[in-house]
Computed example of a mutant assay.
Amino acid sequence: MSVLSKAAYFWRSAAGGLKHAPFVHFIAVSTIAIALFAAGLARGASHVVDNLLASLGGEVEVTLYLAPQLGEDEVHGVHTRVVELSHGEVTVVPPEAALKRLKQELGDLGEALSELPENPLPATLELRVPEARRSPAALAALAKELRALPGVTGVDYGEAAVERLSAIARALSFGALVALVVVLGTTIVIVAATLQLAIYSRREEIEIQKLVGATDRFVKAPFLLEGLLQGLLGALVAVGGLWLFGRLLGPTLGSLFAFLLGPGVAAPWVETRTALELLAAGCALGLGGSFVAVGRFLRV
């Protein structure tokens, strides 16, 4: 029997197995589709959350309060030193500009500041930290270095907010990983169980094949292909569901996130790379379940 003949036989046998027990395979395909659809939604939501954290993290600025007695040249010297230490964008805010900004932020109440005998606000430096140094540990180390500079009386960078954002990101990543492991494990078990039922329904055919000298690989191959087809069909259903989800609810969600964080935050729910990854994952799930099934049931 040639290689092409064997391959054709295996694919016909696998397709016939799907037709022989449609309800059993429908359960397996539906399980894979639901798992991959949930994984695709989680992937899209994770992307949006990452953009959210990056956007919020980008708004965190380090403010340095300078001593009132510093002259213009000394302020320029501190500015230069801060740029060298942080490699970020530093803006000098004179006391007059700080007071004017405060008046605008207070609105009608800001007029009361005009009655002050002198400007109580010091000159400040506003530092926009590079993305690579926005982690809590890096910001804390940078703030320690900045506080040690001559002429700097205080440093504020919203430490509590940065740590809270970092904790949220870690919790989301850990939760997504645990959920993924549980869902994938459960899916493989269900696929293996349904395929075992299909194998059991064809036990007489398997016994005849073994009696006439069929090898272990020859007996296993059609069932492995059945699992592969199950995974492929489930992945196609999941990709179609994500595409439909993006068409129906994507514009609404995109408008919501654009309102909160600006345009470009919400990404398409089904990208080419995501679709290919889901197809590969579906095939892997189907093959994994079929390997478990033939290994436990056939014992060949």
Rank of each mutant, 00 (worst) to 15 (best):
34 I>E: 04
290 S>G: 08
248 L>A: 10
195 L>S: 06
198 A>N: 15
126 E>A: 10
123 A>F: 11
181 V>S: 01
46 S>L: 12
81 R>N: 13
40 G>L: 03
4 L>A: 14
11 W>D: 11
242 L>N: 02
22 P>E: 02
76 H>W: 11
34 I>L: 01
142 L>C: 08
148 A>I: 03
36 L>Y: 00
85 L>I: 04
279 L>W: 01
21 A>H: 10
148 A>T: 04
268 P>C: 00
47 H>R: 14
166 S>W: 14
208 I>G: 00
212 V>R: 10
261 L>R: 10
182 V>K: 05
286 G>R: 03
90 V>T: 03
112 A>L: 15
169 A>V: 10
168 I>Q: 11
133 R>M: 11
160 A>F: 13
140 A>E: 13
219 V>T: 04
255 S>Y: 13
132 A>Y: 00
205 E>P: 10
251 P>S: 05
297 F>K: 08
187 T>R: 00
262 G>F: 07
261 L>Q: 08
84 E>F: 01
77 G>P: 11
154 G>K: 12
261 L>H: 09
16 G>W: 03
13 S>C: 13
113 L>D: 07
253 L>V: 09
55 S>I: 00
250 G>E: 00
144 K>W: 02
44 G>S: 10
264 G>L: 07
67 A>V: 12
124 T>C: 04
219 V>R: 05
18 L>C: 04
244 L>E: 09
33 A>F: 06
245 F>V: 03
165 L>C: 03
96 E>P: 09
208 I>D: 03
124 T>V: 08
46 S>T: 14
248 L>T: 12
41 L>W: 04
107 G>Y: 00
50 D>C: 09
184 L>I: 10
76 H>N: 06
236 L>D: 05
143 A>Q: 07
299 R>L: 13
216 D>V: 15
83 V>I: 14
230 Q>P: 02
210 K>E: 09
22 P>Y: 01
127 L>N: 03
164 R>C: 11
111 E>K: 15
246 G>S: 06
238 A>C: 00
23 F>R: 10
24 V>Y: 14
232 L>P: 02
251 P>T: 00
286 G>F: 05
50 D>H: 13
293 A>F: 00
269 W>E: 06
42 A>G: 03
212 V>S: 06
277 E>R: 14
190 I>Y: 04
170 R>Y: 09
227 G>L: 02
182 V>E: 05
276 L>C: 04
25 H>Q: 10
129 V>R: 07
153 T>Q: 15
278 L>D: 08
243 W>T: 10
153 T>C: 13
216 D>Q: 13
256 L>N: 13
60 V>F: 08
260 L>H: 01
35 A>S: 01
1 M>E: 14
124 T>E: 07
150 P>F: 00
14 A>H: 03
206 I>H: 09
203 R>N: 09
255 S>V: 15
222 P>M: 07
217 R>N: 12
166 S>A: 12
181 V>W: 02
164 R>P: 08
167 A>I: 09
82 V>E: 03
257 F>L: 01
197 L>Q: 12
248 L>H: 09
292 V>W: 11
61 E>M: 12
235 A>G: 07
53 L>W: 01
98 A>Y: 01
207 E>V: 14
141 A>H: 01
173 S>A: 15
148 A>C: 03
264 G>F: 07
226 E>T: 04
